[in-house]
Design a binder for these strands. Structure first.
Lengths: 150, 150
DNA sequence: ACTCAACTGTAGCTATTGCTACATTTACGG
DNA sequence: CCGTAAATGTAGCAATAGCTACAGTTGAGT
């Protein structure tokens, strides 16, 4: 009888779920860094309060996560001071922004309604590998047919 | 100055991230239920040990999560006994299996290499809404062009 | 029947992300 | 200046998901 109960091939590790777990670890960082970049762009200054409103969580949660991201050299702040991006943070934010835009455009290109495209892109973007992203980009650049228009 | 710093529209809640957080809450349930179904199908019996190997975590983690899923009426077990699916669990597993297959086929259809398609499908499947899934299904059923063959 | 290895459960730790309640700081207006 | 409201920080709680170490069960083989 076939191999083990592993339903997915384990080419790069003991379990495909390992990658998903790793993604979750960076997901928060990516969301916050991207949000900081957006807020900075819109208001010129990013405060804990802005992030709390943007992410839909309490200011306490934001404070703690910002502290962690500062220790990871992604954000830069001081008590009662605005939050800025480090060089690494800027770079990560740019990558995330680009990837998010690609995923969103891709979903729209295959015919997903805008509101669901927004919601799903938020969750999907963190789980899209390099090859998948490239395929999405190619698809958006050159949609194979008028699939979206009946 | 425009609206708020919300970069994404908030059509169905205070923040698009709320949905992502909700998805995460059910993600574990879905993964475990699906794994139980697979193991049951392959070996006829599902033990804590099988799940631990399948998910790449320790048996302790599995025990605790199985207990929670039992309290949620998705799994059914007893101390030192095999793990089975409840009716609700069966239903959820079937839905997940179908969705996973769709996402994976879709990724393959847009040209993602099989190994990355496996990995990414694992992370993406939990964040795919009904409309997005339907679009993927339509795409797989009727690929617009020979996008995958250079 | 008994022994023993494998399996399972329990205790107790860490880390992350939520929260409320309370304390402190900033900054603005009078 | 000084007071106050808003913003921020801190303390301490809950739930989830990891882990190691140790204890208890099961079941197979002798």
């Amino acid at each position: 009888m076939a191999a083990s109960a592993q339903r997915r091939p384990s080419a790069s590790g003991p379990s495909p779920f390992a990658k998903v777990r790793r993604d979750h670890a960076t997901e928060t960082a990516e969301d916050y860094v991207e949000a900081v970049a957006d807020i900075l762009h819109e208001r010129g200054e990013c405060r804990v309060r802005d992030l709390a409103r943007n992410m839909g969580v309490s200011h306490v949660t934001v404070t703690r996560i910002v502290a962690r991201l500062q220790s990871e050299d992604l954000l830069d702040t001081a008590p009662y001071r605005p939050i800025r991006l480090t060089a690494r943070g800027e770079k990560l934010a740019a990558e995330c922004r680009r990837r998010h835009a690609t995923v969103r455009s891709f979903l729209l290109a295959i015919g997903v309604p805008p509101d669901e495209a927004d919601r799903d892109a938020e969750g999907i973007e963190h789980h899209v590998g390099a090859a998948t992203l490239e395929c999405m980009r190619r698809f958006v650049d050159r949609p194979p047919a008028s699939e979206t228009s009946p």
